[in-house]
Design a protein around this nucleic acid. Structure first.
Lengths: 203, 203
DNA sequence: ATATGATTTAACTAATCGGTTAAACAGATT
DNA sequence: AATCTGTTTAACCGATTAGTTAAATCATAT
């Protein structure tokens, strides 16, 4: 019952790491946000690195189920891809800091690369193989244009996340209001679907 | 003639800052790469911050001319936009670390936001106004679909940079070879042109 | 040659940060 | 009440880092 302080620290660590990244977050900051002493952080989690890994793994894991829908549900290919784009997009809308966080940490921490691979490798290989076979068959029967599963997945993710990674920069530069931003976000979601499906299906 | 050490430090700082960002770069690292002592860095540039600002400003400035071609040259709108997409894309191919660097530092350093705005604000407003007027006229005469200049510029930049920002993550995950990567890059360049022009021009 | 000014070095300071430790505290059990 | 266990606190340590300083070195002009 009384894991309050321990939980608070994990919660605070997630806030800090997600908003500032590993390098610019201090254990004292986390402790302060958790309303406690930074020695507690080491008492419960041994090290900053250890605590960070927990946060990183937790966030990575929440993404995995999203990808399963690419091959797991029974919708036809076209609807399944559209569904994936929209679900993935909506998830990023709810977690706008996550893409930048993951990219940032993978670029700067070799451990994160390993965690990312460990968590994702098998599932992505499975999805990739399934989708690859399906795409090839659809291509050979003349239903879609030629594209590899890797490229398709990559393009979907890129189109979906770029708006959020570059958004802070763009909003700083052009004076975009909150309403314009929300309109822009919804517009991008629809456009990403059109772009990807347009790439797949002959006009 | 003998500004060698001073120049070396600036060069080394650019290498370090671009690859590791401000927070994870130390003055000692820069000095070591420049083949000198870290006291020299402070002798010539006063502070790490000051040196960083020089590097950041220099890199920001190299981007500005790219954007001028959006309204400055005499090509028809369609060719001018295509040209901009391709020139911008090629520039990123030559400077693949720059997008991430700029985003990263703007997100973490308020000074960078100001520098970015100071350098870009007037030029982007000018280009935006010109392009906005042109797009509106083209729309009203039925030549293109309705889109704001801000959205158009934003989409071009996003499409062009996302492949490079997320690339390290993707290559870690899927085992993409150097040849596949180069092929993918060229493919994306052409596809970005098609996507943007497809967005602008009625089918 | 020597004086002058710019450049370079090594040793230092002060501050920050991750992590440790020992002692204090609280709550439950006997 | 005494003890034991888990939790919290405050003080400290060692390493790293940005920045300083004073002395040494080098180049150049007189």
């Amino acid at each position: 019952m009384e894991k309050k302080t321990e939980d608070n620290i994990l919660w605070a660590a997630e806030q800090e790491f997600l908003s500032k990244g590993f390098a610019r977050t201090t254990t004292a900051d986390i402790a302060k946000l958790a309303g406690t002493n930074h020695a507690l952080l080491h008492y419960y989690y041994r090290s900053k690195e250890n605590l960070f890994i927990k946060v990183f793994e937790k966030n990575i894991q929440t993404i995995i189920p999203l990808f399963c829908s690419l091959t797991d549900n029974n919708l036809p290919l076209k609807e399944r891809i559209q569904n994936f784009i929209e679900v993935h997009f909506d998830y990023i809308v709810q977690n706008p800091r996550l893409p930048y966080f993951i990219i940032n940490e993978i670029l700067s921490n070799a451990n994160c690369v390993q965690i990312f691979q460990k968590q994702f490798q098998s599932i992505i290989n499975e999805i990739n193989a399934k989708l690859e076979a399906e795409l090839r068959q659809e291509y050979e029967t003349g239903h879609i244009n030629n594209i590899t599963a890797g490229n398709l997945i990559y393009e979907i993710i890129s189109l979906n996340i770029c708006a959020f990674v570059a958004m802070p920069v763009a909003t700083q530069l052009l004076n975009i209001s909150q309403e314009e931003y929300l309109r822009f976000v919804q517009q991008r979601k629809a456009e990403n679907v059109v772009t990807i499906l347009g790439r797949l299906y002959k006009k």
